[in-house]
């Protein structure tokens, strides 16, 4: 297991380096002088000259990359043009919202996706299955912002059950009750993903159900529900768990739209606002953080995969 983890970590490094190089190059692809781009329109000629020296912008590109990478590894992602504060702290400010939103969304995805997927698979071909798998495909076809807007319209404006926008930190007044601000956003974000999980659970279970070992399980005289859960679902879980991981990893960036609809102070909205504000250091920083997070979560998924499937760890 340890060796496997080490091996997977090693294979991650080149990809990570290449991805970080792309993120680094991003600023250089924008037309104009990188130092002025990073400092924004209001910078003085002196400031530009200073940053040019600091970042070694007069050096060859690859030297600049390693200087930048060195800074990044020390936690220095540059300074926000808009906030005039370190990019890392700007990102950290959005982290609570984004992480809570992602976790709550994940809870919905599991709670909605798995039982309906299992139901759909066990009722394969019957009307229940047709309705649920058709409904899942329909749900996956709805633009998230549209769903979010109508959820606000119905449940905030109409019924007044949930707040329509913003998210005060859990450490503010209200404490845990502030989570109610995330109910509608997390449901919005969960809908298309839960739909995909339903379809995946169903498809994987139907695949496993055809395997020979399921017949063996039935031949033991096990109750069909027992066969469905202990043998079919347990084996289908190998593929489904991987999808949970990928979904979770993608949630932070998918939340861009949802956070905008509900005006949540998360990392997703930060990306959009920074793009509109041309706050390039923040854009660069956020992309880097999301990409690294995305890759790390995917690695964890791989490792979890090895735990779920005994055949993998020994290979």
């Amino acid at each position: 297991m340890l060796a496997y983890t080490a091996k997977r970590l090693l294979t991650l490094i080149p990809t990570l380096l290449a991805a970080s190089a792309l993120v680094f190059l991003f600023v250089h692809l924008i037309p104009g002088d990188p130092a002025s781009i990073l400092l924004g329109d209001t910078a003085t000629a002196e400031e530009v000259a200073q940053l040019t020296r600091e970042m070694g912008l007069d050096q060859p590109l690859w030297v600049q990359y390693f200087v930048w990478l060195g800074n990044v590894l020390q936690g220095d992602l540059g300074t926000s043009v808009f906030f005039k504060t370190p990019v890392l702290s700007v990102i950290a400010a959005g982290a609570e919202t984004s992480i809570l939103l992602a976790c709550m969304t994940m809870v919905w995805i599991v709670l909605i996706g798995v039982p309906i997927g299992v139901l759909s698979a066990t009722m394969h071909g019957k009307w229940v299955d047709q309705v649920t798998s058709g409904g899942a495909m329909l749900a996956a076809s709805i633009p998230t912002f549209w769903l979010g807007l109508y959820l606000i319209f119905i449940f905030s404006v109409g019924l007044g059950w949930f707040p329509s926008s913003g998210f005060p930190s859990l450490s503010d007044d209200g404490g845990l009750a502030n989570l109610r601000y995330l109910v509608l956003p997390s449901l919005t974000l969960a809908a298309p993903n839960a739909a995909l999980i339903i379809r995946l659970v169903r498809a994987s279970m139907l695949d496993v159900a055809r395997e020979d070992h399921v017949r063996t399980a039935r031949a033991k005289g096990l109750h069909p529900a027992n066969v469905a859960i202990k043998h079919v679902f347990r084996n289908a879980l190998i593929a489904v768990a991987a999808a949970f991981g990928f979904t979770f990893a993608a949630l932070i960036s998918e939340a861009v739209v949802t956070e905008t609809v509900f005006s949540l102070p998360g990392i997703g909205r930060l990306v959009v606002q920074s793009i509109l504000r041309r706050d390039y250091p923040v854009i660069q920083g956020v992309i880097l953080v999301i990409v690294v997070l995305y890759m790390v979560i995917n690695l964890l998924v791989d490792l979890a995969y090895a735990r779920l499937d005994p055949r993998v760890s020994l290979k």
Binding site: R215, T216, A219
Partner: peptide
């Protein structure tokens, strides 16, 4: 009934299948 059959299956009556490589649950 299915229930009565399951009480016999694997108990009074058992079966070995054609495909030894895939007849056991891999997990």
């Amino acid at each position: 009934s299915s229930k009565q059959r399951r009480a016999i299956m694997g108990n009074r009556m058992a079966m070995i299948f054609q495909e030894p490589m895939t007849s056991l649950n891999p997990v």
